[in-house]
Amino acid sequence: MKLGLDQGFQGQYPDRRVLNNDVEVMIRPLVADDEDQLLAFYRDLPPETRLRLRQDNSNRKILQRFLEEIPLGRMVTMGGFEVEGEKLVGECSLRIMHHGWARHVGELKYSLMPKWSPTGLGGILIMELVEVASSQGLDKLVYQVLDDQVRLKKMLQEMGFVQEAILRDHATDLSGKKHDIYIMSNYMAELWRKMEDMIMYQEFPPLP
């Protein structure tokens, strides 16, 4: 299994994408040098969003631990930036185990400035990492969604994720409130096999 982004991926960033509102954003993988940008991003998130962060990255020490994972290849983080001023407005991370029985599984999570939420940026960042996951040989992606993250759950379902399990009262948000966690998963190989099957079925239908 490869560690981190391969050369082919490195070469395609920074890249620009047009969002649903016709605004252009720049996307690129984040590195340890982006610590200040990330810290400012997490600290700018509104309290209701920060409450639901899996870990409080607005704390520099916690963020540094998160960033240490990147050069080790255990984390790939894609950032979305405003084109003018290059301010970070969203990030999506893929955690990869590399060993143990879940070495074929990657875990995604993302955070976005609320203003950018309806623009499709979240979906773009996730799809970038789905492609990275595919190039890393991962077969399955999971996303842990809190019970009140309804829009996020819907977006993941639109991308082919299905609800696989519910863990009751499994998360405590930063305010101390307990939440159920929905484990959403997506089998990437299965997804693309469907496309191949569809093409083969159309071009060589079974004999009557």
């Binding site: 979906g123 773009i124 639109e158 997804l191 693309w192 569809m198």
Partner: peptide, 9 residues
Amino acid sequence: SVPKGTEAL
């Protein structure tokens, strides 16, 4: 026309 989940790509 394409399978669900593959739309973005």
